[in-house]
Write a protein that binds this DNA or RNA. Structure first.
Length: 428
DNA sequence: CGACTTTGACCGGCGC
DNA sequence: GCGCCGGTCAAAGTCG
């Protein structure tokens, strides 16, 4: 019902992501066997299921939350009519503040409580994505749905003649596997995000002396979510965690904010690429309204997949002005006291430029902040602003940031690392 | 003994 | 076609 469709570029097939529960598909046991590699994956997943069984009992608490989340989505979805872009823009102009629940949790340095008021705003955005993605068919049944890394047999494009062929082509090319990265200063090997992970590989990536570690979620057998953890080459104190896929199981509260935000960020990344006129106008208005961005976002063409980066590292003073180039202003967020003065919170939307050639600069393989001067390309500016200024996205983003900060602080308190404490203090 | 990590091998995509 | 590279597998080792 509230799925988005992303395409696995390795297979050019579509994957449905449930954006409300953070789950994939509806039938954990149904494995679409299509292609050799998929057969292998399916076999391994089945093997694990036989060995481990399901973890439903463990996740009782999480399932309650997930159901709550889903019910909220059902309630909210009705508020969005067919004129979705208008609704979104109206909502954006109406209120750019985040939920009081999230603010309260932030002020208390606790993970935000997932409540109706804090999460419901995400839902219309997700629906907006589905609509703006050219009428891509939802996957509600187990036959239609499939696991995040198990591609479906055929792309599920809407054959409606309402969408012209050109738009279909753009849409299909834009829908790629979305990723969400989190940059955070941490001395720990990974950031604590509330999920259980199992390391399954490590590689030395080119251009970075630090190895990249590969983890998969072990909270349920066959959960397709994976993450990559790698230290930044420029600043090895910065840990870059990249999440991919959606959980196929209920999440604990500690992981809910992250999961909802990664889904929301991915959806906004895709949906915001086709801003309406209202969104363009709002983008310019926002840029004038908030001259000192508490948060900003960039577009980049350097990533193989559309990626949103949530940057919770303190901004380097030397190049902060440079980093502002190509960034777009977010509406003022009510960050906690330890996060407000210079909260370098960057929602860095890394577009696969070749897939959105109509919107982005023709240059390839370069970071857009370097190739697109601020406001030089109003379309790109508006697209990014449309993503980052949406109150629904910012609410989810704020929730995740709060969760991350809380986890980092928890780690800091536990290991009493002076360096880590300093890094957190620097972010205040 | 089960869960997890390590690490070399393997595979597929992609550029030349 | 070939080589590079990212991602994954799976056997062996480690840990609690």
């Amino acid at each position: 019902m509230h799925d988005i469709i992303v395409m696995d570029p390795s297979t050019d097939r579509l994957t449905s992501l449930n954006l409300l529960t953070g789950s994939i598909g509806s039938d954990n046991k149904s494995i679409v066997e299509d292609g050799a590699s998929q057969n292998k994956e399916a076999y391994n997943q089945r093997k694990k299921e036989v060995i481990h069984g399901t973890l439903e009992e463990k996740q009782h608490v999480g399932s309650i939350i997930a159901r709550h989340f889903l019910d909220l989505g059902k309630a909210e979805i009705g508020e969005i009519g067919e004129g979705c872009s208008q609704s979104v823009s109206e909502e954006r102009s109406r209120d750019c503040s985040i939920s009081p629940n999230i603010v309260e949790s932030m002020e208390n340095n606790k993970p935000p409580v997932v409540s109706s008021s804090s999460i419901s705003g995400v839902v219309p955005v997700l629906d907006h994505l589905k609509r703006s993605a050219g009428g891509i068919k939802n996957c509600e049944t187990s036959e239609e749905a499939f696991h995040g890394w198990v591609p479906n047999k055929v792309p599920k494009f809407n054959t409606s003649r309402d969408v012209d062929d050109e738009q279909k082509a753009v849409t299909s090319s834009m829908i790629r596997k979305a990723r969400v990265s989190v940059r955070a200063r941490s001395e720990a090997s990974t950031i604590s995000d509330g999920c259980q992970w199992r390391k399954y590989g490590q590689k030395l990536a080119k251009g970075n002396p630090c190895p990249r570690s590969y983890y998969r979620c072990t909270m349920s057998s066959g959960c397709p979510v994976r993450k990559q953890v790698q230290r930044c080459a420029e600043d090895q104190a910065v840990l870059v965690t990249t999440y991919e896929g959606c959980h196929d199981h209920p999440l604990p509260p500690a992981a809910m904010a992250m999961a909802s935000t990664t889904s929301a960020a991915a959806s906004m990344l895709l949906s915001g690429s086709m801003p309406s006129h209202d969104e363009l106008m709002n983008a310019n208005l926002l840029a004038k309204t908030f001259p000192c961005p508490p948060c900003f976002a960039t577009l980049s063409a350097s990533a193989p997949f559309p990626t949103v980066t949530l940057d919770v590292t303190p901004p380097p003073a030397s190049n902060s002005s440079q980093r502002l180039q190509g960034h777009f202003l977010l509406p003022s967020l009510n960050f906690p006291n330890n996060f407000t003065s210079t909260p370098h919170v960057s929602a860095q939307a890394l577009y696969n430029q070749s897939k959105v050639s109509g919107l982005l600069s023709p240059h390839k393989g370069m970071e857009l902040p370097q190739i697109i001067p601020p406001l030089a390309d109003s379309t790109v500016s508006a697209a990014t602003a449309a993503i980052t200024s949406d109150p629904n996205f910012t609410a989810a983003l704020a929730a995740a940031i709060s969760s991350i900060i809380g986890n980092i602080q928890a780690n800091s308190n536990s290991n009493s690392s002076p360096t880590l404490r300093n890094s957190i203090d620097n972010s205040t």
